[in-house]
Simulated scan of single mutants.
Amino acid sequence: MKRYFVAAALCIASPALAQPATAPDFVKAAGASDLYERQSSQLVLQSTKNAKVREFATMMVKDHTNSTQMVVKAATQAGLKPKPPALMPEQAQMIAQLRGATGEARDKMYVTQQKAAHQKALALHQGYASKGDKVPLKAVAGKIAPVVEHHIMMLQGM
C-alpha cells in the first residue's frame, strides 16, 4: 500500500503535466495547487503532534493563501476573470488518503505528498515564468517559484 501512495504522488509530480500553455490553464493549475496545499495542511494541523510538521503546515496555509492572492491579482491585470480554485481529481484523492490516515502515518504521508506536490508546483511556476503568454502572470510565477524552492528545501530536512 505504501508503494501505491508514493507512485501516485510521483505521477502527480510529472513535469509534463505541470506546464500549461495558456494563462487560463496556468491560473487553474496554480489555484488547484494552492488549494491542495492549504487543505492538506489544515487537515494535518488538526492532528499532528510533530512540531516540524506543524510549523511547515502552518507556513503552507499562509504562503499558499498569499500565492493564490498574487495569481488572482495578476490574472485580473492580464484581463482574465479567474474562477474560484478547485482540486484536480488526483489532489482530491490525496486529501482522501490523508483523511484515512492517522497519527505518525498521516504525518509521513503528508510529507511525502508535499514533496511531490511541490515538485509539480515548481515545474508549473518555472515553466510559466519562462514560457507563459501573459506578462503579469509570468512575473508572479517568477516570484512564486523561489518560495516553492524554499519549501522543497525545508521538506528535505523532514
Rank of each mutant, 00 (worst) to 15 (best):
1 M>C: 07
4 Y>V: 13
4 Y>R: 15
6 V>T: 11
7 A>L: 12
7 A>M: 12
11 C>S: 14
12 I>F: 14
18 A>R: 09
19 Q>R: 15
20 P>E: 03
20 P>R: 12
21 A>Y: 03
22 T>C: 06
22 T>W: 00
23 A>E: 04
24 P>V: 05
25 D>C: 06
29 A>V: 05
30 A>M: 12
32 A>F: 06
34 D>A: 15
34 D>F: 00
35 L>G: 03
36 Y>A: 10
37 E>H: 01
40 S>G: 14
41 S>V: 04
42 Q>A: 13
46 Q>D: 14
47 S>C: 05
48 T>Y: 02
49 K>N: 10
50 N>C: 08
50 N>G: 09
51 A>V: 11
57 A>D: 01
57 A>Y: 03
58 T>R: 14
58 T>G: 14
58 T>K: 14
60 M>T: 01
60 M>R: 06
60 M>S: 02
62 K>I: 05
62 K>Y: 06
66 N>F: 08
70 M>S: 09
71 V>H: 04
72 V>G: 01
72 V>K: 09
74 A>M: 10
76 T>I: 12
76 T>P: 02
77 Q>K: 14
78 A>R: 02
79 G>Y: 03
80 L>M: 14
80 L>N: 04
81 K>W: 00
86 A>T: 13
89 P>N: 09
92 A>F: 01
92 A>Y: 00
97 Q>P: 00
98 L>D: 01
99 R>G: 01
99 R>S: 08
106 R>N: 03
107 D>V: 02
107 D>R: 00
109 M>V: 03
111 V>L: 15
111 V>E: 11
114 Q>E: 11
118 H>A: 08
120 K>D: 01
121 A>L: 08
125 H>W: 08
129 A>H: 10
131 K>S: 13
131 K>P: 00
133 D>W: 07
133 D>K: 07
133 D>A: 05
134 K>E: 12
137 L>C: 06
140 V>T: 09
145 A>M: 05
149 E>M: 12
149 E>P: 00
152 I>R: 15
155 L>C: 09
